[in-house]
Design a protein around this nucleic acid. Structure first.
Length: 557
RNA sequence: GUCCGAGUAGCUCAGCCGGAUAGAGCAUACGCCUUCUAAGCGUACGGUCGGGGGUUCGAGUCCCUCCUCGGACGCCA
């Protein structure tokens, strides 16, 4: 491990244990373990030591020995190799349990305090360019709970990816060129005329939501009666462009309020302007998978595992949604991204196969495109389901939820559950602002830490803390030490919700420590200064963890 | 019908790619503030991990099958 990594806060204790085990295996059995084969974990039951490994059980076949015999042969070597180990024991079906010297666990305090906001940062994926696309709500309406969930997951995941060294581009794809924009324009056009008392037929696929009337009002204020009784065809561009811009402004404002950011906003329209759609079609033509049928141009996606072939150019000459999206993905690769991640709603899952097939047809590796599907959110209010119709005009939008539950609770709620399981969003519970909400539990722990740190005694920074030896302290230390590992796992499995489990556990261990260990004791200043350092380290980690899920860390509550 | 996801405590959900007696929170019951924030801590109660087979030292986790729920199967986006 490099010096840089240590400064940044890699998990030294576990790394050293793994190294010792690997060395002992080599020395005693001449066995070279593959990367990642030896793993250590913190046993659920603390009577099983500070750390444990299942390597003895995994090697029974390879070495043709019983776990007990393996451990007996390794034991001395391990103690010799790693001086931080207090004792090595075998337990259960063949776990090797390690009890660590108390002082060695405390070395993590200095590591954390020195690293500060950077604790948890590693360079595991350093330099890898990756593009993550999420939200991408059409500029025709509001952000709804399903989108809000994807936004929370995407934003949190990208924050974590950066922590592991990824060069992340956070990207939003603006669908500002399809049929839906025409429907938007027509809908505003009709509402605009209604404001002048003129009835026009509402478009069949129009948007009935109230905010369309707001847009019409805005336009009326801007241009007065300029477009009254002008044929739609003659002012379509104005209504489409103005509507798109206003809707997009609203989306941006809502996302900013929500703490969700993007580096690049890519407009579908500019894909055409930059000629990317045609050049993508040319590229597909080279693949030999394009064919004509009934006046339309198709891509033979079945060649690469899709259920059926897909239309790219309709018989009327216009493109399907798929076509510019293909060129968009090609562009993302061409901009130097080694990996692409799309975070899509569950209703898009059927889209994955054709998208991957298209990527393959473009000569790119479909394995470099990951699609995370975020399952549906069912809205409940007064025990009844709320339909998530964008056009019903009565669906609840992100900003309504934020208004009632706050950004922190909303983001926590959405990110805390695995993306691939459906969830119910009970408005009544989410807006209750009661102690039921786990976000308060974690924030309260942080406020408590800050409260303790606000006094005239300074915490002490040193290599080891000999007075910190209480069992609650040891558990807290081990949890703090886990933080970089948790980030890595969240990123590796693309499951940011694991961070919430970590946060709850950390908060719980801290509250428990708080109740058992009085930190400030003016009759024992040495212990006080050491414990204050532990509290400071806890505060740093909890704040960093909350940041990764976009939740604030209040200093008082 | 085909494909994808889900099914774990009364409720909401975890379960770290096969490990130790399956865990939290809420709810219920009982304890703990003259002490750094009681939005807290502790104890108890609560489970045929949807059903049935299989793989092996070992399965909530992997394979097969069936059941239930949600979603997707457009020249819509």
């Amino acid at each position: 491990m490099s010096i840089v990594l240590e400064l940044l806060g890699m998990n030294k204790i576990e790394e050293n244990l793994i190294n010792a085990i690997n060395k002992a295996l080599k020395t005693r059995f001449d066995f070279e373990a593959s990367e990642g084969m030896v793993m250590v974990e913190i046993p659920k039951d603390k009577t099983n030591g500070d750390y444990s490994t299942n390597i003895a059980m995994r090697l029974t076949k390879v070495l043709s020995k019983r776990p007990q015999d393996i451990v007996n042969e390794l034991k001395e070597e391990l103690l010799k190799e790693n001086k931080d180990i207090e004792a090595v024991e075998i337990a259960g079906p063949g776990f090797i349990n390690f009890r660590m010297k108390k002082a060695s666990l405390t070395s993590t305090i200095k590591t954390i305090i020195d690293a500060g906001d950077n604790f948890g940062q590693t360079d595991t994926n350093k330099g890898t360019k990756v593009c993550v696309e999420y939200v991408s709500v059409n500029p025709t309406g509001d952000i709804h709970p399903g989108h809000a969930r994807g936004a929370a997951i995407g934003d949190s995941l990208t924050r974590m990816m950066k922590k592991t060294g990824y060069d992340v581009t956070r990207e939003y794809y603006i669908n500002d060129a399809g049929n839906q924009i025409d429907n938007l324009g027509r809908s505003i056009y009709v509402r605009y005329h209604e404001l002048f008392g003129i009835e026009k037929p509402f478009p069949e696929d129009g948007y009935h939501a109230k905010d369309i009337i707001d847009l019409a009002n805005y336009i009326k204020n801007e241009v007065g009666d300029k477009y009254v009784n002008v044929e739609y065809a003659d002012c379509a561009q104005y209504f489409k462009e103005t509507g798109t811009k206003l809707e997009l402004d609203k989306l941006k404002a809502d996302l900013e309020l929500y703490g969700v950011e993007f580096d690049v906003w890519t407009s579908e329209k500019t894909l055409y302007a930059r000629n990317l759609v045609l050049s993508a079609l040319d590229k597909l033509k080279e693949s030999g998978l394009l064919f004509e049928n009934e006046g339309a141009t198709w891509l033979r996606t079945t060649e690469y595992g899709d259920d059926k072939d897909r239309v790219l150019v309709k018989s009327d000459g216009s493109y399907t949604y798929f076509t510019p999206d293909i060129s968009y993905h090609l562009d993302k690769f061409n901009r130097g991204h080694e990996r692409l991640i799309d975070i899509l709603g569950a209703d898009h899952h059927g889209y994955i196969a054709r998208l991957k097939a298209a990527v393959k047809a473009l000569g790119k590796n479909p394995d470099n495109l990951d699609v995370i599907i975020v399952q549906m959110v069912r809205l409940l209010k007064d025990g009844e389901e709320f339909k998530l119709s964008k056009r019903s005009g009565k669906a609840i939008a992100l900003r309504d939820i934020i208004e009632e539950a706050g950004v922190d609770a909303t983001r926590y709620f959405f990110v805390s559950k695995a993306a691939n399981s459906q969830m119910d969003f009970d408005i009544d519970v989410a807006t209750k602002k009661s102690n039921d909400n786990p976000v308060y539990y974690a924030q309260y722990a942080h406020a408590r830490m800050c409260s303790i740190l606000k006094n005239d005694i300074a915490y002490e920074v040193k290599d080891v803390y000999p007075l910190i030896e209480n069992d609650k302290e040891a558990q807290l230390l081990k949890q703090l030490n886990e933080f970089p590992n948790v980030i890595e796992e969240c990123v590796e499995y693309q499951e940011p919700h694991r961070m919430c489990n970590y946060i709850q556990k950390l908060a719980s261990l801290f509250h428990s420590f708080y109740n058992e260990c009085k930190v400030i004791d003016r009759d024992n200043m040495e212990l006080t200064k050491e414990r204050l350092a532990l509290v400071k380290a806890s505060e740093i980690v909890l704040k960093n963890a909350l940041y990764l899920i976009g939740v604030s860390a209040p200093e008082q509550m």
